[in-house]
Design a protein around this nucleic acid. Structure first.
Lengths: 239, 239
DNA sequence: GCTACTATTAACTATTAAGTTAATTAAAAC
DNA sequence: GTTTTAATTAACTTAATAGTTAATAGTAGC
């Protein structure tokens, strides 16, 4: 066997290697920019195997996207109920997943107007997320009468923007979005803004409702930072 | 002259037509995706003229980006001091400028790690913007001790995310980010969150400072919607 | 009106990319 | 051990792309 390499055939292994390489290449270059030659090289398989396993470059791309979206569906299901915790959770899991973020961004910028990959599933996930916000609002943990679709869009914006626009983050903060220092500061800020958004109720609420919600919020907020004490003092002043 | 088209030579006009077509094509397709053939066709000039006027596709791209960034530098300079107004202003001018947003996004996703186009200018602009936030914070219009670079990043996130990720906006809200209905709802939300973020002072402030800031905020807020009236009533209650 | 310059048109070139065809060979089936 | 199947390697094909070369013709200068 001197100098002769034995070829071991394992279609599943080949398929997995191509898939992993494709995730990396599509994330880096998008569909149009990724080269099947490069994917094959990265996977250390013959280019022909890509067509053998997945059919076309487009089919491979769909599969990569479908699986990544499906994998990341855990984000919504595992989101805590408390708003600031939810924001942090989304950031920690989704906001720092560079491949996922970039795939979403390539999808965004590729200008398709047709049906999205896993569109139905994603709609359902997002509806679930907005429904949870609605419950939190109804239970008094979020201000009344704010637009919850806009709130949810804004949550996603706050969470994934650093990875989506790294050059802007670099220009403003002199840090890479993946830098642990940046992540720490971002997390602290998201904690703050999460608490801030979910804090005081809307000013137009009736006093009785406000008192009740105050009490609920105070109880819920008892483990919070001392920024929560001030609203309680205001409540005492009103009574 | 029957049936014979007269060619009128005007190099400036040709250059301008190519530039305008290039802005559209680069915004739509990015650098790699845009085709010089398509740019020339859109501009209704012969492809050769693109090289005659701008040298290479890359040089044309730089020029388009440079000029667009320079044009949009007005955004920071014309931003109002009041936080919520600033947010709305950024949204109304920058957040709905699709070409600009997409050029920034293409830049983001194209993975360059070298020097950005107009990098120095942009850094200065962003430093100016953060300095304004610092002044607002010092003057009591923004909460103490929040991270202003994170705040500014978050402003940009809230403002341009809908155009950056239109498919997500579509999935969540069933509207296009350019739809006037969406724009209206977004603007209202940004008004709310802007007020929210810049609202109550940190709980650790002294009461005297609080009263003074309340008074200042009330004066600044006198032209606002009726959500501002209730804090005035609270102020009367305190006195 | 003639000449020189240059804006414009038309055609060509070398390279690259996705996909295809042909050949080889590992391994399963008999 | 032999045959068949299918996983793998190697080479080929067609179309598209940025850029280049050659030719034409509008217009400024004299």
């Amino acid at each position: 066997m001197a100098g002769q390499r034995t070829i071991i055939r394992d279609l599943n292994r080949t398929r997995d290697k191509i898939f992993a390489a494709a995730l990396t290449e599509f994330s880096a270059k998008g569909f149009a920019g990724a080269r099947v030659d490069a994917i094959a090289r990265r996977a250390r398989v013959n280019k022909r195997m890509l067509y053998y396993c997945f059919g076309t470059k487009q089919d491979l791309y769909r599969e990569v996207l479908r699986r990544k979206i499906s994998q990341r569906a855990d984000l919504i299901d595992s989101t805590p109920d408390k708003f600031a915790d939810a924001l942090l959770h989304l950031y920690k899991l989704g906001g720092t997943d560079r491949d996922f973020t970039r795939l979403m961004e390539w999808e965004a910028i590729d200008n398709g107007r047709g049906k999205l990959i896993a569109e139905t599933e994603r709609r359902e996930l997002f509806e679930k997320a907005v429904a949870r916000l609605r419950r939190a609002q109804r239970d008094g943990f979020l201000p009344k009468q704010i637009d919850l679709t806009q709130l949810f869009i804004s949550m996603l914006a706050l969470v994934i923007f650093p990875m989506v626009m790294p050059q802007i983050v670099r220009l403003i903060s002199d840090m890479e979005p993946g830098d642990p220092r940046f992540v720490r500061r971002r997390a602290a800020f998201l904690r703050w803004i999460g608490d801030r958004i979910s804090g005081d109720p809307a000013a137009t609420s009736s006093t009785a409702d406000k008192v009740n919600r105050r009490h609920t919020e105070f109880a819920a907020g008892v483990s919070h930072s001392k920024t929560r004490i001030h609203p309680a003092k205001k409540l005492a002043g009103l009574r």
